[in-house]
Design a protein around this nucleic acid. Structure first.
Lengths: 67, 67
DNA sequence: TTTTTTTGTAAAGCTTACTTGACATTTAAA
DNA sequence: TTTAAATGTCAAGTAAGCTTTACAAAAAAA
């Protein structure tokens, strides 16, 4: 699973912590998702997409090689 | 999190097991997701939506009351 | 109605999403 | 260049997604 969080976050000039606080997860979680260490849960994905006013598909790109 | 899996599955006349096999999860997992006992992971949500040729937003409806 | 298929559900176990806390490294600001 | 802010990462713990096995209940087919 790829994602465009880092780019979208930069556009808004938000820190990882800003984003984390806005959606109610830890800063480490945002860092891990951005660095693609693991995939977010579906609710977390919805919250991230919602905050950026994008669809999930615009933020996350599924690849068949995903777990 | 609400979802329209049961309806979409009925349209295709697939059993829970058909769907489970098609996306590579257990029948119990499909049953639990349909009955909203838990949310699917993001990869599982992508696979379900993809199989029905719908966006994630068309299949799953996020509600702020979600965990 | 009897049989078969489908769905519902539970327990125990494994994996992964996510947490807090801590500390090192990189980047930006003073 | 010194300081502060932002990012990267690790360890240990909790919670949730998902598995297999098993069996009961409901629905559909014979």
């Amino acid at each position: 699973m790829k994602n465009r969080i880092r780019v979208l976050r930069a556009e808004k000039k938000w820190t990882q912590e800003d984003l984390a606080d806005a959606i109610g997860v830890s800063r480490q979680t945002i860092n891990a998702i951005e660095k693609e260490k693991f995939d977010p849960s579906l609710p977390t994905a919805f919250r991230i997409a919602g905050l950026f006013e994008r669809t999930i598909e615009e933020v996350f790109q599924f690849e068949e090689s995903d777990a």
